[in-house]
Structure formats: structure tokens, C-alpha cells
Design a protein around this nucleic acid. Sequence first.
DNA 1: CTGAAAGCGCTAACAC
DNA 2: GTGTTAGCGCTTTCAG
Lengths: 341, 341
Amino acid sequence: MAATIQDVARAAGVSVGTVSRAMNNYPDISAKTRERILKVAEELKYRPNLVAKSLSSKHSRDIALILSGFLEDAMFNDFETMLMKGCYQFAFERGLDISMYVINSRTQEEKSYEQLCYEHNIAGGIIFGIKSTDPYFTSLAESKNPCVTIDVEVSGENVSSVTNDHMAAFDELTQYLIDQGHRRIALVCGRKNATVTAQRMDGAMRALERNGLKPPADSVIYTNFLKEEATEGVTGFLKEHQDKGVTAFLCMSDLLAIGTVEALKEAGCRVPDDYSVVGYDGLYVTEYTDPRLTTVDQNIKDKGYEAAHLLFDMIEGRRSAQRLILPHKLEIRDSVKRLEI
Amino acid sequence: MAATIQDVARAAGVSVGTVSRAMNNYPDISAKTRERILKVAEELKYRPNLVAKSLSSKHSRDIALILSGFLEDAMFNDFETMLMKGCYQFAFERGLDISMYVINSRTQEEKSYEQLCYEHNIAGGIIFGIKSTDPYFTSLAESKNPCVTIDVEVSGENVSSVTNDHMAAFDELTQYLIDQGHRRIALVCGRKNATVTAQRMDGAMRALERNGLKPPADSVIYTNFLKEEATEGVTGFLKEHQDKGVTAFLCMSDLLAIGTVEALKEAGCRVPDDYSVVGYDGLYVTEYTDPRLTTVDQNIKDKGYEAAHLLFDMIEGRRSAQRLILPHKLEIRDSVKRLEI
DNA sequence: CTGAAAGCGCTAACAC
DNA sequence: GTGTTAGCGCTTTCAG
């Protein structure tokens, strides 16, 4: 049986209050009493029961990583793994604990964010994957527990967000395609009313318009960010519009780009010789696909790290709610052909 | 402020004990009292504080997923993601909570498995990534908290393991290479004293010997399961042994196979035309590499699911410690050339 | 069937 | 500085 604070108190000949003071580095305790208690605790291999601790103190430093839709991705998703690594990296450096919770649109309805925090005595959470139609989207604002959302902006006193300048990034990516001589560019988009879809669309449009271009008619394909939908959409597009003269596919995620390449290969086309394709995200897999995919690296691991950092600072009252925009980087690889004009 | 059991008791005009009985579906309570309490709880949006609950009841149904070395993989690792999905899938179906903890060899020393469980009031854990030199490797056996290890076998009354028949699987994989006409096969191995390395090595040897073959001299390359080491090892091998007539590389993981392919391409060789390569694991990325990698699918997600299932049953006393061996499947794709003999 | 009361292990006033 | 004590929100005897 594990030693409790009582056991330590008894063994050291002091009261439990004193042991608590010693263990938590309170100032109002004599150095030698502390020494002695710490030694006894060491000998007894005493470990404070964190559950009792947080119940008693009414607050914890535990933070949660809350993923919505994690189980719905049938495909592997590097994105979430990278995010986790970033979060856990931060927690690990600070000696904090992170618990990970998996939710979906239905469970959000059953239990609010605040209730989740209350149940588990969590100080705050990093939230990824919520849609604008999800209950959390509005209810987060009412929570007294701080939170940090990834890539979506939710207004609220205690809610921060960490994101990239998706518009600028997509502008760059589009401009790159244009610089390589592409004029007729098809768009493979994400969910129609997702924030990131809108932002990336704006970036693409801005670049196109600046160059006096616009997407050819019927060449904007919408998906729910699923690879299979990209494959299907592009296959359909090729059947009906092969004559439209499209030379490149601008995809809103790497997964969609991979799906696009599959459709193209299936139809007997070569990438990038017949069609150029670019993705977005910077998943590791894009270095191993054939061809290696030109994409925008969001530096997802950093996003996780900075989100955890920001959340922690909010919990400790050192930083207030804010919008953090992290840098991105255009990764030029082999999936775009330079056209002679 | 969230409602407590007291609030519900007051509002329903009963004692807290009765509310507790109603909430936990105890039999010794009249149907209509239960109804009433449940209705009040609903109205007050009452959610039991899980922290208080587990402190009070002295046991929880919470299970943990404990990953050792998660942060050390610089590369993405599908493996852990798949494992998580399997575990969370099970937990989700049962309405359980899983918390994920990241440890490494050092932190294992600071805090035993049992202490970790005690601190967080965890019933038991699924443990992945421990090495035979790690503190956990021996200390797990002494813990009263049940656990399930993935792919390593630790003896102990309360420890189960979920694994594949790596020896049989590697035998099959090797035999496949032999059936395709390969006679001189180089091995790209994992960590020298890892259990899985030994098992896979045994499988390879068994197949080779059965066919009257053995690995050419100096053609066994050891790594720590890092892609870069495979690249480096194979590059060195090619420089010194190109004449040995090796036609295929048998790799102990997909990551190593990817590293091997990189080295080969770097040296100007084509896969599978000049050299055949096979991997092991069944990571999703192997479907997108060039060429698509022939590998053994371990069905990692199922492993996670079954591990969580087994652990849960152990906690509830329905199953005792055991070794669970899950099926694997040879995935034949495009990285092996059939040699005419 | 239900209420009262004693804890679970710890923190945080409040005394001295 | 240190001991004492009242909770944190819940479960679980034990009465009745």
C-alpha cells in the first residue's frame, strides 16, 4: 500500500499540515523540518495523491488536449499526432500532466466543455477539430475555464486561438503556381463552411485576382477534407471538363492533394507532367509520396507547443486571451511542373 | 458554478446518499424516488465530480495509455497513432476515459508504474515502447495494478501482453522473397536486444534455413529502429559489398524500409528493378511511397482495441493475465521484383 | 427503502 | 513555525 501524507507525518513526528507545507515548498517552515520531512518522504517513497490534492485545493494545473473527430478519420492523420507531440513536449518540459480526451459532435451536446473540466478537475484545454456547427463552438465562450482552440476562432473572454495566416499562406502557394506558368487552376477545397476553407479560399482568390485570373468555371471541388472525396471529385471533374485546359490542382490539404494525385494516376495522367498538384499542411507523408508534394508547412508541432504554452500562461494568469499567429513555410518539391509561356 | 450532489439532494428533498444510489443505479431504491432524482439532476445539469468519486470509492475505471519514447521519435509515427485510435475506440464505445501519459527511461526511474497509477487514481494501463533495459521492464511484475504491454512480454501475475506472432510473420515475409527468386538477402534489423528484433530474426532464419540459405556475410545491418540509421547502414553496405550479389533487403519495420529505399535511390539504384525491399508493420504511409511497399500488416489499431479490452476485463476481474496473439497479414505490393531463376 | 455519518488524502484557514 | 480542524464531493457502511 502506498504511503499517505499521514504516514509521513507520523514517521517524521509532525502534523500533516507541516508535511503539506514541506512538500509544496511553502516558505513558512523551518529549513531543517523541511529537510527531515523530505527525507522521510523519500524513504517511504511517498507520492502525493494528485486526485485528493486537486479535490482539496479546488484547482489543478492539469491541462487537457481535446480532439473532436479523432476516431472518424479512417486515414492516419499526422496532423493530430504532431499536435500531440508539441503539447506533450511542453508538458514534459514543465513537469505537467496532459490528459487527452476524444469527443465528437454528439458528445459535445451531452456534456459541455465546462462540465468536462469540472468532472476531471482540469484547469483548461486545447481544442482541436471542432466545426462551426458544433455545440462547443458557441459554448466555449461561456466557460470560465480557459481554452485554446487550434485554427478556429471562437470569441470569448477566456478563449485564445493558435493558427497560421492561412490566407497569406494560400496566397503564396497560389502565386507560386502562377509563377510557374499556371493560368487555369482548379481548386480542391475542404468543408464549405469551415473557417480554414474560407481563409484559404480568400488567399487563393486574392492571388488569382492580383494576376488577373480566376478559377475556370466548374473547377472548384468541395469535400469534407476526406481523401476519398478528392479522388472522387477530381475523377468526376476530369470526365466532364478535360477540355477546360486546367493545368494545376490547388488543394486545401495534403490529404486532398494525395487523393487528387490518386485520381490523376487512375485516369492515366502523370504528375507533374500532365497536371501539377500542390497540397497544404506539411504532413511528413508528403516527403514520401510519388512525386514528393509541394506544400505549405504549418509547423504543426510548434502549434501544439505554443498552444500548450499559451494555455498554461492563461491558467497562471500571466497572459490573457489572444490570437497567436505562427509562421508557415512554402515547401517546394516535385509536384509542380514549370510551364513555358 | 456546477451543481454538486448536495444541490441535487436538497432540490429533490432527499439525502446525498440516496442521490448517490440513484445516480449509480443501485437496486435498493424505489423506482419513483430514482425517477424524481434523475429528473432533478437533469434539470440542474448535474455531473458527478469524477475526482471526488474516485477519491471516495478508492477505485476508478479509468485506464491509461502509457507511451515510452513518444517524444523521441523525430519522425511521425503512425504506429502510436493507430494504437491510440484503437484504445480510444474501445473506451469510447464503453463510455470510459483514457488518459495518455508520456514517459521515458528516466522518468520511469523517478516514478514507478504503481506510483503513477496511484497518483492519478488509474485502474490500469496499456504500455507501449518500453525497452528491456527500462526500469518498468522488471517493476511491472510487482505492481498490483494490472497492465497490458504491447509487443514485449513481461512476466507477472497482473501483466498481460498483446502481440503478433512476429516470428511466423517474418518467416512468411522471408519465404515470399525466396519464392520470388531471391537468394541473397540482406537484413536491416532493429535494436539488437529488442524482443521484436529477436523474434523477427528467428523467423527470417527459419525461412532461410528451410530453403538451404543464409544471409550473405556482413549483410546484417543493425539500427535503433530509426529511418536515418537504415539509410546510413545501407549506404555503407552498398559501398563495401555491392559485389556480394544481394538482390533484396528484408527490413524489420516500414520506417527502416523507407530509409533503405532512400539509400538505394540516393545511390542511383531503382526499386524494385535493381533491389527489392520489404518492410514490416503496415503503416499507412507504405501505400503512398514510391514504390508502394510490400509489408506485413500488424493491424495495429486492433492491437490497441484488444489491449484496452483485455485490460478492462482484467480490471473487472473477468479475464486473467494472458498473452494475446493477434493475426497479421502479408500485404503484397510493388517493391519486390520477381527474379527468373 | 432511506437518512445519518464516517471517511478517501489532501489543503488552507485559524490558532498558539 | 507548527498543530488543529474544517472541508473538497462523493461512496459506503450502519441504523432504522
